[in-house]
Amino acid sequence: MSRVPSPPPPAEMSSGPVAESWCYTQIKVVKFSYMWTINNFSFCREEMGEVIKSSTFSSGANDKLKWCLRVNPKGLDEESKDYLSLYLLLVSCPKSEVRAKFKFSILNAKGEETKAMESQRAYRFVQGKDWGFKKFIRRDFLLDEANGLLPDDKLTLFCEVSVVQDSVNISGQNTMNMVKVPECRLADELGGLWENSRFTDCCLCVAGQEFQAHKAILAARSPVFSAMFEHEMEESKKNRVEINDVEPEVFKEMMCFIYTGKAPNLDKMADDLLAAADKYALERLKVMCEDALCSNLSVENAAEILILADLHSADQLKTQAVDFINYHASDVLETSGWKSMVVSHPHLVAEAYRSLASAQCPFLGPPRKRLKQS
């Protein structure tokens, strides 16, 4: 649940008159999402009104509101027999009622949201009550392989729920002597030191190019640089560091992050930047690179990204790559990247197969709970 924001200063709310007192009302909304995959969808019983329910879910471990999704594969009634019906059901509720908006969509073979439908307002739910769409999607369109909505005969539904909580009022009075504290510009100011090479005390040599930097900042941000300058190493004695395995453009992006906490060109060089972040123990930059690479996972590059993640101990990226390969196994196994990995990294192939087997055979063990970014 997000923290209630402070109200904007009255002088910034309007260029008009300023009242002596004010009130700011925040209506709290808890948002969460749920993904439900139905394997072997074409084998569902086709009687009209037949119901399939998901397991229950909530916004978190401490949330007492429990929900589930309900599907009628062949419609709810005679009117909707040519459609799939989809509903959000409130299973248990400690209150007399709650209000919530919802959005349903289908994830296609690429994991993209399609055929989205959402409620136009927050509906009133009581325990045992459901709301949804009797005519969510035509069955003939859903079952047509050309539309790519049932890869490997799996129907994957994605649901986003927004639950309306209580409202909170914050009130106060205006004073004539309003003090406005300026925003912190530390990142910009440190970035200026790097860009202008002011007050530098060490030189970093990268592929024949020299960059002036500040030992204190490098040591504070990177345990690797800290070790170089702290001990009686040649880098500490000469205040000069030779860097041979990072390209200059990648190095500059890494230094921008060290000084400012930002990497504006990360998406263009996420793979190389991940390697640099791993070498210099820049954990936050490493996770930022993992996130960017996750966003660009595809059938063509899944094997290469899995190898990269394994090489640099990028655990979150590795998990996402394995899950992606499992979901698109029939396509990924035909790529040149996968065939190369079979020869060069057989242990990763074995890991992917083990994960695929456990996903398809849940009876082999208890269900695993899916539970950071600093």
Results as ranks from 00 to 15, higher is better:
residue 1 M to N: 00
residue 8 P to G: 11
residue 8 P to H: 13
residue 9 P to H: 05
residue 10 P to M: 11
residue 11 A to F: 09
residue 11 A to D: 13
residue 12 E to G: 06
residue 13 M to C: 05
residue 14 S to M: 02
residue 15 S to R: 03
residue 21 S to F: 08
residue 23 C to P: 00
residue 23 C to G: 09
residue 24 Y to P: 00
residue 24 Y to F: 04
residue 26 Q to V: 12
residue 26 Q to G: 06
residue 29 V to W: 06
residue 32 F to V: 03
residue 36 W to V: 07
residue 38 I to R: 13
residue 41 F to C: 07
residue 42 S to D: 07
residue 44 C to I: 04
residue 45 R to F: 06
residue 45 R to T: 04
residue 49 G to R: 01
residue 49 G to F: 07
residue 60 G to A: 02
residue 62 N to Y: 03
residue 62 N to L: 02
residue 65 L to K: 11
residue 67 W to G: 01
residue 68 C to A: 09
residue 69 L to A: 09
residue 71 V to D: 05
residue 71 V to M: 01
residue 76 L to R: 12
residue 78 E to F: 12
residue 79 E to M: 05
residue 84 L to C: 06
residue 87 Y to A: 08
residue 91 V to M: 08
residue 92 S to I: 05
residue 94 P to N: 10
residue 95 K to N: 11
residue 96 S to E: 12
residue 97 E to F: 11
residue 98 V to Q: 15
residue 100 A to W: 00
residue 101 K to L: 13
residue 102 F to H: 00
residue 102 F to T: 00
residue 105 S to A: 11
residue 107 L to I: 05
residue 108 N to Q: 12
residue 109 A to N: 15
residue 111 G to E: 08
residue 111 G to H: 09
residue 112 E to M: 06
residue 113 E to W: 04
residue 114 T to D: 14
residue 114 T to V: 09
residue 114 T to K: 01
residue 115 K to D: 09
residue 117 M to Y: 09
residue 118 E to L: 09
residue 118 E to N: 10
residue 118 E to G: 11
residue 121 R to P: 01
residue 124 R to V: 12
residue 128 G to P: 15
residue 129 K to A: 04
residue 129 K to E: 15
residue 132 G to M: 00
residue 133 F to S: 11
residue 134 K to F: 00
residue 134 K to Q: 01
residue 136 F to N: 03
residue 138 R to M: 10
residue 142 L to E: 04
residue 145 E to K: 06
residue 147 N to Q: 06
residue 147 N to M: 12
residue 148 G to N: 13
residue 148 G to I: 08
residue 149 L to V: 02
residue 153 D to S: 12
residue 153 D to M: 14
residue 155 L to Y: 10
residue 156 T to K: 05
residue 158 F to C: 06
residue 158 F to D: 14
residue 160 E to L: 05
residue 161 V to W: 15
residue 162 S to P: 08
residue 162 S to I: 08
residue 163 V to R: 14
residue 164 V to I: 07
residue 164 V to A: 12
residue 165 Q to R: 07
residue 169 N to M: 04
residue 169 N to V: 02
residue 170 I to G: 06
residue 171 S to Y: 05
residue 172 G to N: 03
residue 174 N to M: 04
residue 179 V to D: 09
residue 181 V to T: 06
residue 183 E to A: 01
residue 183 E to R: 06
residue 185 R to C: 08
residue 188 D to A: 02
residue 189 E to N: 01
residue 194 W to H: 06
residue 196 N to G: 07
residue 198 R to L: 14
residue 207 A to Y: 11
residue 207 A to F: 12
residue 208 G to M: 13
residue 209 Q to F: 15
residue 209 Q to W: 14
residue 209 Q to R: 08
residue 211 F to S: 12
residue 217 I to C: 12
residue 220 A to E: 14
residue 220 A to H: 02
residue 220 A to C: 12
residue 222 S to Q: 00
residue 224 V to P: 08
residue 225 F to P: 00
residue 228 M to E: 13
residue 233 M to R: 14
residue 234 E to A: 14
residue 241 V to L: 03
residue 246 V to E: 01
residue 247 E to P: 06
residue 247 E to K: 07
residue 251 F to S: 03
residue 254 M to R: 01
residue 255 M to R: 04
residue 257 F to H: 08
residue 259 Y to G: 01
residue 267 D to W: 06
residue 272 D to H: 01
residue 277 A to C: 02
residue 278 D to T: 10
residue 279 K to L: 04
residue 281 A to D: 02
residue 283 E to A: 07
residue 284 R to L: 06
residue 284 R to G: 02
residue 286 K to C: 06
residue 286 K to Q: 01
residue 287 V to W: 07
residue 288 M to F: 08
residue 288 M to K: 01
residue 291 D to M: 06
residue 292 A to Y: 05
residue 294 C to K: 15
residue 296 N to A: 06
residue 296 N to Y: 14
residue 297 L to M: 10
residue 306 L to M: 03
residue 307 I to S: 08
residue 311 L to I: 11
residue 312 H to W: 04
residue 313 S to M: 13
residue 313 S to E: 13
residue 317 L to W: 00
residue 317 L to H: 00
residue 318 K to R: 04
residue 320 Q to M: 03
residue 326 N to D: 03
residue 329 A to P: 10
residue 331 D to V: 09
residue 333 L to P: 06
residue 333 L to N: 07
residue 335 T to R: 09
residue 342 V to A: 10
residue 347 H to P: 03
residue 348 L to F: 09
residue 349 V to C: 10
residue 349 V to K: 00
residue 351 E to A: 06
residue 351 E to P: 11
residue 352 A to H: 10
residue 353 Y to S: 00
residue 353 Y to Q: 00
residue 355 S to V: 06
residue 364 L to F: 14
residue 365 G to T: 12
residue 368 R to C: 15
residue 370 R to P: 05
